[in-house]
Computed example of a mutant assay.
Amino acid sequence: MFTVMKNPVIWWPLVIKVPIDGGETSDHEVSLQLEILNEDEYDEIAVMGEKAILKRVIKDWKHIDDVDKKPLKFTSENLAMLLKKSFVHRSFMVGYLNAAIGVVVKN
Rank of each mutant, 00 (worst) to 15 (best):
residue 6 K to C: 05
residue 23 G to Q: 11
residue 79 L to M: 13
residue 87 F to N: 02
residue 33 Q to H: 01
residue 6 K to A: 15
residue 10 I to L: 14
residue 70 K to G: 01
residue 50 E to L: 00
residue 106 K to P: 01
residue 74 F to M: 10
residue 18 V to R: 15
residue 6 K to S: 10
residue 68 D to R: 14
residue 38 N to V: 05
residue 78 N to D: 02
residue 41 E to I: 00
residue 36 I to R: 08
residue 86 S to W: 00
residue 64 I to W: 12
residue 68 D to Y: 12
residue 53 I to A: 06
residue 81 M to T: 10
residue 28 H to L: 12
residue 9 V to F: 07
residue 4 V to F: 12
residue 55 K to H: 12
residue 46 A to V: 06
residue 76 S to P: 04
residue 21 D to V: 09
residue 88 V to G: 03
residue 14 L to W: 04
residue 68 D to T: 12
residue 97 L to C: 05
residue 54 L to I: 07
residue 34 L to Y: 13
residue 39 E to M: 11
residue 57 V to F: 08
residue 2 F to G: 04
residue 31 S to V: 04
residue 70 K to H: 13
residue 24 E to W: 11
residue 59 K to F: 07
residue 92 F to Q: 02
residue 44 E to T: 14
residue 71 P to V: 05
residue 49 G to D: 07
residue 69 K to S: 12
residue 13 P to I: 05
residue 1 M to E: 09
residue 67 V to E: 15
residue 66 D to H: 09
residue 103 V to M: 07
residue 16 I to Y: 05
residue 10 I to Q: 10
residue 47 V to A: 10
residue 88 V to P: 01
residue 82 L to D: 04
residue 40 D to S: 15
residue 107 N to A: 13
residue 41 E to V: 02
residue 18 V to P: 00
residue 61 W to K: 01
residue 79 L to C: 09
residue 71 P to A: 09
residue 102 G to W: 07
residue 86 S to P: 01
residue 88 V to K: 02
residue 103 V to S: 01
residue 95 G to S: 05
residue 88 V to W: 14
residue 25 T to I: 10
residue 54 L to T: 05
residue 14 L to Q: 03
residue 97 L to V: 08
residue 91 S to P: 06
residue 106 K to S: 14
residue 42 Y to S: 00
residue 38 N to G: 09
residue 43 D to Y: 06
residue 62 K to M: 08
residue 36 I to G: 07
residue 76 S to D: 14
residue 53 I to D: 06
residue 61 W to R: 01
residue 76 S to W: 02
residue 67 V to T: 08
residue 21 D to E: 15
residue 5 M to F: 12
residue 80 A to E: 15
residue 70 K to L: 15
residue 74 F to T: 00
residue 68 D to C: 06
residue 75 T to W: 05
residue 35 E to T: 14
residue 72 L to T: 03
residue 94 V to H: 03
residue 46 A to W: 07
residue 57 V to M: 07
residue 42 Y to K: 11
residue 75 T to Y: 08
residue 18 V to M: 10
residue 98 N to V: 01
residue 15 V to H: 09
residue 53 I to S: 03
residue 13 P to N: 10
residue 91 S to V: 03
residue 73 K to A: 13
residue 27 D to N: 14
residue 9 V to D: 04
residue 81 M to D: 13
residue 98 N to C: 14
residue 50 E to S: 01
residue 23 G to K: 08
residue 54 L to D: 04
residue 29 E to P: 04
residue 52 A to N: 11
residue 9 V to K: 15
residue 15 V to N: 08
residue 30 V to S: 07
residue 102 G to H: 07
residue 93 M to Y: 14
residue 64 I to C: 11
residue 21 D to P: 03
residue 25 T to C: 13
residue 6 K to W: 04
residue 79 L to W: 08
residue 93 M to I: 04
residue 11 W to E: 13
residue 61 W to C: 03
residue 14 L to E: 00
residue 99 A to V: 04
residue 70 K to T: 08
residue 76 S to M: 11
residue 70 K to A: 14
residue 81 M to R: 11
residue 68 D to W: 03
residue 48 M to L: 13
residue 93 M to C: 00
residue 92 F to H: 03
residue 100 A to Q: 15
residue 88 V to T: 08
residue 88 V to D: 01
residue 19 P to E: 09
residue 91 S to D: 02
residue 95 G to E: 02
residue 80 A to S: 15
residue 20 I to D: 10
residue 2 F to D: 13
residue 78 N to L: 05
residue 26 S to A: 10
residue 107 N to S: 12
residue 94 V to L: 11
residue 58 I to Q: 01
residue 107 N to T: 03
residue 30 V to E: 09
residue 87 F to Q: 00
